[in-house]
Write a protein that binds this DNA or RNA. Structure first.
Lengths: 188, 188
DNA sequence: GGCTCCATGTAAGGAGTTACATGATTCA
DNA sequence: TGAATCATGTAACTCCTTACATGGAGCC
């Protein structure tokens, strides 16, 4: 395996796949794919068309190694993160780029910018209330699954707690938007 | 101008550009570009290489119309959203897809998943504390500029309030992570 | 005359998406 | 024996990115 130089930083997806291999390995690419698919915060499709090329790149960079499983007649390959892979992962985690401190791209916030396109108060209120309801539903979803995680894994518990607090904040904010819209003039 | 059919939904960027033209128009593509560049939540580079092709597509779809300014010797074109554009924008704002209810992709949360790669407690604590400090800095940044927005524009005030509440939640969460790490065992 | 800002674009490339394709294994 | 799952991949496409290219307008 020829190890290519890192011409630039890994993408978020590449880093997360590397992390998953480091954390769960030895395991197959398929297992990683399933984990991404089941994950609550699956912002990636994690289809075979994305995951296998990512693994290929990580292997070419010498960050992940793959060994064929002789007991399996299929093309099953067992992945492990290399020492170099762990080192790159470590600096990805540690060296927070400046943009990671900024708020994320919230699709509700994006849409609220143009709420004036909804011409009457009823339509604006309806929009805000549906977004609010969706946020509260997500809060309940997180609250439902947090207790089991608390027993299983401290890290998984904490990451899900982060998701919970984010959607709680969104729900709280939308409550304020709703109140401002109900009490004040139409937004334009 | 031949109007193409919408073969699928607009991307978030395309919708936001359409929204900006609808809101600020008549204006040039350059003005839109500047607005995106200055925006706090600029998740897009908004370079000319992205903005002009987007405008081109929106024009081809008949959502934005462009008129040459005879008083200007340059290739200056003044953009306005068409009625069809306003209608598409309206449904983009109104019809929230299911995924918009989910928590966003938080790079800190992504990294926390693999915090075990930082091998000693000091390194883990250092990571959490730096993320915490960055979040609090962002909170102060938002708090600083909110009062002026309150007077200027209700919508801009509300969207920035949303950003503030998100980073406040993140800061609060990282405080909890810090405490758990300081009081309990190392994360793995 | 040169510098900065206004203004519009193209070209090459990368990363991720959907859709397609293949075959072994396991279990009812 | 047939269906679901395990397992790996390719092909075409889209969108966005960086870098490059051009030229007028205004100002010192």
């Amino acid at each position: 395996m020829v190890v290519k130089a890192l011409r630039k930083e890994l993408t978020e997806l590449e880093s997360c796949v590397l992390g998953a291999v480091w954390l769960r390995g030895p395991c197959t690419a398929y297992a990683i794919r399933c984990e991404f698919a089941e994950s609550t915060s699956s912002y990636w499709s994690a289809s075979s068309g994305s995951i296998y090329p990512v693994i290929k790149r990580l292997r070419a960079l010498g960050l992940v190694s793959a060994a064929a499983d002789p007991s399996d007649k299929r093309d099953k390959r067992v992945l492990v993160a290399t020492a170099r892979g762990a080192s790159i992962l470590r600096s990805w985690v540690r060296d927070l780029p400046a943009w990671t401190g900024k708020p994320s791209l919230d699709p509700i916030r994006s849409r609220l910018n143009f709420i004036a396109v909804l011409e009457d108060r009823a339509a604006q209120l309806d929009f805000v209330e549906r977004a609010h309801a969706a946020a509260r539903a997500q809060v309940h979803e997180f609250r439902r699954q947090l207790p089991t995680l608390k027993k299983t894994s401290a890290v998984e518990y904490l990451t899900n707690l982060g998701g919970l607090e984010e959607v709680e904040a969104r729900a709280h904010w939308l409550g304020a938007v709703r109140k401002m819209l109900a009490d004040g003039p139409i937004l334009k």
